[in-house]
Design a protein around this nucleic acid. Structure first.
Length: 457
RNA sequence: GGCGACGUAGCCAAGUGGACUAAGGCGGAGGUCUGCAAAACCUCUAUUCGGCGGUUCGAAUCCGCCCGUCGCCUCCA
């Protein structure tokens, strides 16, 4: 399969170092606030990549970290009067709840920075030994001038970075772009002992230490949002390659485009967040996944309720294609659909085209059913391909109050059936209209009347 | 200021030199079915790809300029 590699800036044929197992590291969240739909987009993308790789026969070892110590966590914990640990546990719980709901497969390991301190200290000490880092006033900094290809991922030079002129000059640093590996403790902050005094790890070094610990010196795929390219991933490369000497640190770097809300990026600092929990109040997990996958992963995606609602409607036809058929004619042939689907996925995970194939297949199944064809081959292919995209095709889950109302709706429907049999259509239609106002949709067919709650739209 | 991405139908969104007389979805119009609906199915819905030049036998696709939108350069998926 071809993948776009941020490092080279072009499409490359994907070949893992070890043909049996793909080593994939995806940057995880800093758990200090609710998981939002921007996170969901990113993790749906990498979950879909993993599912496709597994579909084509690879084993994938997926590792994803939690940055469980950081300025924001400390600040948030102090504001709300809880311990850092409790705060982190709460939002890690929120994260897993959201990811499970979205049918995102769990990683093999979820290392946490605070539980990897010895590995982190080893890495920092090694970098100092090799002349790539230096202690200064309780901190330890990475010496960017010691790596001649620093900037190769984000495709910029040290000079152009400085030209940005938004860097806080710090007199402890040898070079303005040097970044912190170890932060000396300030009063009241969580800290760990180190050869350079008490402190905590910088953001970038944890990923170096954890990927090394759980995946080894070289990764096949390193993923994350495009906002992580610089400085986070650039710095990871610098640390990892200087520490291990193994190049490249990751063979492929993949970055998803960021979710936008209105015209702005959705981000914690802008405060324009839609949480996954809120989104799932209104829309099915399938709709969220399909929404994310209906544009290419490297493009930005503008999130809106209208957009999600349109996707939700589009799913109904696909779900209909999976309802039982009773045709006995020739099977609807789905082999060509599978081939087109695979070709799309092979092309840098072109999920918009893959999704289009799913819609084509659903239409062919529905058409075949109308024509009296057998549709079970088509249906099993539809489920198989849908599963690669993580789609379950499950209906919306009814709330407790909706379940409680069901017997009464059944009663009204059976009364209406009697009325229709007696050709009392005005009354029958009145019942149907009234139920529609309550969000209950009726469908009459030769097999009787079906009803369901309408998804909000 | 530096680096980069993008601009395709009312909306979302693929396609990046010739099979494009431009996928797929939403919305809209008409039809089949139905007591009427709904759902499903059928047909139609961009002679055109931000604008202007250029390269080419041929451009949505390559080059230049202009206009517009967005991202990164600072915590972020």
């Amino acid at each position: 399969m071809k993948l776009y590699n941020t490092l080279s800036g072009r499409l490359e044929e994907f070949v893992p170092a070890d043909a049996d197992e793909v080593k994939m590291y995806v940057c995880g969240v800093t758990p200090y606030s609710s998981t939002h739909v921007g996170h969901a987009l990113s993790y749906v993308v990498f979950d879909t990549l993993r599912r496709y790789l597994e579909y084509t026969g690879y084993k994938v070892r997926h590792v994803q970290n939690f940055t469980d110590v950081d300025d924001k966590i400390i600040q948030r914990a102090q504001e709300s009067g809880v311990s850092e640990d409790d705060l982190v546990d709460e939002f890690i719980g929120d994260y897993f709840h959201a990811m499970d709901a979205l049918n995102i497969q769990r990683a093999a390991e979820y290392p946490r920075a605070t539980r990897e301190i010895p590995r982190i200290l080893d890495a920092i000490a090694g970098l100092i030994d090799r002349g790539h880092a230096y202690p200064a006033a309780g901190d330890v900094y990475f010496r960017v001038t010691s790596k001649d290809d620093y900037g190769k991922l984000s495709h910029r030079t040290l000079d152009s970075m400085i030209a940005g002129a938004r860097i806080q000059v710090d007199e402890n640093k040898e070079h303005p772009m040097d970044f912190v590996l170890w932060k000396g403790a300030k009063p009241g902050e969580p800290s760990w002992e180190s050869p350079w005094g008490p402190g905590r790890p910088g953001w970038h070094i944890e990923c170096t230490a954890m990927s090394l610990e759980y995946l080894g010196e070289q990764l096949d795929i390193h993923g994350g949002g495009q906002d992580l390219v610089f400085p986070h991933h650039e710095n990871e490369i610098a640390q990892s390659e200087c520490y291990t000497g193994a190049k490249p640190f990751s063979r492929y770097w993949m970055h998803n485009g960021l979710l936008q809300l209105g015209s702005d990026k959705m981000s914690k600092s802008l405060g324009n967040l839609v949480s996954v929990a809120d989104a799932l109040e209104e829309f099915t997990p399938d709709a969220m996944r399909l929404y994310f996958l209906s544009s290419h992963y490297r493009s930005p995606l503008a999130y809106s309720d209208e957009g999600a609602a349109a996707v939700e409607r589009s799913l109904e036809r696909v779900r209909h294609a999976l309802t039982p058929g009773n045709g006995s004619g020739p099977q609807v042939d789905a082999a060509e659909h599978r081939a087109r689907f695979t070709a799309a996925m092979e092309d840098d995970l072109n999920t918009p085209q893959a999704v289009a194939v799913l819609f084509d297949l659903a239409r062919d199944i529905n058409r075949g059913r109308d024509a009296g064809q057998s549709i079970d081959d088509g249906q099993s292919t539809l489920r198989e391909l849908g599963d690669v995209l993580g789609l379950t095709f499950a209906e919306r889950v009814s709330s407790a109050s909706e379940l409680a109302a069901a017997p009464f709706i059944d009663l009204l429907v059976s009364v209406r059936t009697e009325l229709r049999a007696a050709r009392q259509f005005a009354l029958a239609d009145q019942i149907r209209d009234s139920l529609a106002e309550q969000g209950v949709a009726l469908e009459d067919s030769a097999q009787g009347t079906q009803w369901q709650y309408q998804s909000p739209s």
